[in-house]
Design a protein around this nucleic acid. Structure first.
Length: 232
DNA sequence: CGACTAACGTAATCAACCC
DNA sequence: GGGTTGATTACGTTAGTCG
């Protein structure tokens, strides 16, 4: 998405959307666990400087793509493997926050990003939680039909939290922090969870390799058929 | 123009929390 | 214990970008 890219528009073609290093980290994680819990998503968030909700959206879209491809090629989708990771802790919405949201809901059932940001500021809740609240509210309190036009243009997705600096995929590329940041070795993951060590090494490997190689070779790394790894 | 992808929608469901 | 509601999932659609 252009809105996630530097404003000068000089991002290389292969990095359309997010940086290829970010994609690589996401793919590496996806291969080990297509259903990451909040802990893994948070680690990814820190490692690749993409906000957690965006990471979640990416995994949703990626699972969708993989499922489609598996169906096309008549391969069974492995689905969840291993114990489930923990969910996002349930957000407690206070009465005053609910009242605020209800007022906004009555005015507009389909708030755009700007309105959600404003509500986030007013309530102190994260913008993505606001979005979830509206989704649940619409589903459970169907009122007048009809939907607001999708607000895509004019988004400030690059920096929903007060427009912080541009995604640091360049830093990610040069600091080498990502290898350790991606899969925190001491994360309190559920016992018997996915092969964390393997995940660590894979993520670190990916990053290490990328640090010492060119984008062209990186493309080759990120390309192997993902399905082949599910069915060795 | 078609392919790709981020963002966003619904519907169904799981699960935590409150009364 | 049941109702409410936040979180997550699958799946579909839209719109922007690129070759």
């Amino acid at each position: 998405m252009a809105l996630l890219t530097p404003s000068d528009g000089t991002l290389p073609a292969e990095a359309r959307g997010w940086g290829w290093r970010q994609r690589l980290a996401l793919r590496a994680c996806f291969e080990w666990n297509p259903y990451p819990g909040i802990a893994t998503r948070e680690r990814l968030t820190q490692a690749i400087s993409i906000l957690e909700p965006r990471v979640q959206i990416w995994f949703q879209n990626e699972r969708s793509r993989q499922l489609r491809q598996h169906r096309r090629e008549s391969w069974p989708w492995p689905g969840r493997c291993g114990p489930q990771e923990g969910r996002q802790k349930r957000t407690t919405v206070t009465r005053s926050q609910t009242a605020l949201l209800l007022r906004a809901f009555e005015k507009d059932r389909f708030p755009g990003i700007a309105a959600r940001e404003e509500l986030a500021r007013e309530t102190g809740l994260p913008e993505y939680r606001i979005q979830i609240w509206f989704q649940n509210r619409r589903a459970r309190h169907p009122g007048q039909p009809g939907r607001a036009p999708v607000q895509v243009g004019g988004l400030c997705i690059a920096a929903p939290v007060g427009c912080h600096p541009a995604p640091s995929w360049v830093d990610f590329a040069h600091t080498g922090e990502c290898g350790t940041g991606l899969p925190a070795p001491h994360v309190p993951c559920a016992p018997g969870a996915l092969p964390q060590g393997a995940f660590v090494s894979q993520g670190a490997w990916a990053v290490t390799v990328l640090k010492n190689s060119q984008a062209s070779s990186a493309e080759g790394i990120s390309q192997p058929s993902p399905a082949s790894r599910y069915f060795p």
